[in-house]
Amino acid sequence: METTKLVHMVNQIALAFRLQPKDEAVSQTVEHLRAFWSPQMRQELLAYVASGGAGLEPLAKEAAAKLSA
C-alpha cells in the first residue's frame, strides 16, 4: 500500500484515541491495528517506522513500533 496512505490512516487512528491517558491511547491504537489491519499492512507500517517514520504522529509512531511485540 502507498506509504502516504498508511501514514494517513494510522495517524487518524492515533488521533481518535489521543484523549485517553497516554499508555491507554497507545495500547488502543495497537489493539485497533491488530484487530483491523492485515498482517501485510502492519508489516509495511513497521518497516516504515524502522526507516524513520517521517510524518507519523508521535502517538502513532509509538503504537506502530509496538506492533512487533
Partner: peptide, 13 residues
C-alpha cells in the same frame, strides 16, 4: 486468525 483486506485495501494492494 489474522484480519484480511478491506475493499479499499484490496484495491490499493
Amino acid at each position: 486468525s489474522e484480519p484480511g483486506l478491506r475493499i479499499p485495501n484490496m484495491l490499493d494492494e
